[in-house]
Design a protein around this nucleic acid. Sequence first.
DNA 1: GTCTATAGGTGGATAGAC
DNA 2: GTCTATCCACCTATAGAC
Lengths: 183, 183
Amino acid sequence: MTILDVAERLAQTRGYNGFSYADIAAHLGVTKASLHYHFPSKADLGCALIERYQAGFSAALEVINSQSAKPMRKLHQYVGLYDSVLRNDRMCLCGMLAAEYETLPAPMQDRLKVFFDINERWLTALLQDGRRSRSFSFKESAKGRARLLLAAFEGAMLVARSYGDSSRFQSAATQLLKNLIGG
Amino acid sequence: MTILDVAERLAQTRGYNGFSYADIAAHLGVTKASLHYHFPSKADLGCALIERYQAGFSAALEVINSQSAKPMRKLHQYVGLYDSVLRNDRMCLCGMLAAEYETLPAPMQDRLKVFFDINERWLTALLQDGRRSRSFSFKESAKGRARLLLAAFEGAMLVARSYGDSSRFQSAATQLLKNLIGG
DNA sequence: GTCTATAGGTGGATAGAC
DNA sequence: GTCTATCCACCTATAGAC
C-alpha cells in the first residue's frame, strides 16, 4: 500500500477536506512528517491523486478502445468502470472533488476539469462512431449527449452511495443507455 | 441575514466540512461564541440547515402541485428549482452533503435521505400522473425514472458548477425531459 | 527516507461576565 | 443574547537528528 493508495481511498470516501496527513500516516504506520518528504504540501498530494486517477482512467479507456467491440458494448464497459468504483464503496474521485471545487487549490481545480474534458472527448468520439454505424440513435449533438451521460453517471453514483445501494446506480445507467442512446 | 442564511450559502458552495463557525461569525459581524447559543454543536446547525432546506423545497413542490398545469410544465418548474439554485452560484445543499455523506453526523445522514425520499416520491407521483394522462411516455417504472431524474439533475449541477457554466445544467435537463419522458 | 519535536494556526466548544 | 477569554484537539508544515 502506497501513500497514494491510502490517500485515494480516503479522498474517494471522505473528500479532500475530509482526511488529513494523520489519517494516512495512521493507516500506513508511519509519521506525518515522513509523508511531507514525498508530498511537501497537501495540494501536491491532491494534484498527484488526480493525475494518477486520470492516468488509470485513460489507460482503461484505451483498453476499451483497443477491442473491436460494438459501440454499445464499449459503452457498457465504460459504465463498468464507474460501477466497479462504486462496488468498492467509493465515489468517483473527480465527482467527489467537484463537490469541493470551490475549496480546492487552483492546480487541483485545473486538473479536475482536465479529467472531465478527457472523459467528455472519449464519450463524444464513441457516440459519434456509434451513430455513424447506426448502433446508436440520438438527435442531439454527440458532445451534449456525452456531457449528459457523464454528469448523470456522477450524480447516480453520488446518490447511490448515500443509500449504500449500488443497484441504484445500475438502474440509472441501464435506463440511460436504453433510452438515451438506444439502437 | 440570519445564521442559517449564511451557513446555508457556505454549505452549498464549500460543503459542510468546508466552513466553520468562524466563517459565519465573520460574515455576520458577531463572535463564534454567540453562534453556539443558537446552535450548540455544528451537528445541530447541520440538521437545522437540512430541515429548513427541506421545508423550503417542499413548499415549492406544493406550489407547483397547486397549479392546474400540464405535467410537463410542472416538471419544467421542478427543473427550475434546481436551475435557480445553480444561477445563484450554489450547488443543491443535499447533493453537496451527499458527497460528504460518510463524514456527516448520523442525524444529518438520516435527514439527507429524507430529502431525497421526498423528492423521489413527488417526482414518482408526477410521472405516474403524466403517464396516466398520456402527457408522458416511458416504459420503466415511475419510481426508477424518478430516481434517475433526481440523480441526473444533481450530477449535472455538480459538474456545471466546476465549469461555472449553468448552461451545462440546462442542456442536460432539456435532453432528459425530451428524451426520457417525452410526450 | 523516516524519525522526534515543535511551530503556528484553526477547528468546535465551554465558562462566566455583562 | 452577545461578549471575552480560554480549552484542547487537530491541522498543515518545518527543522534537524539519525
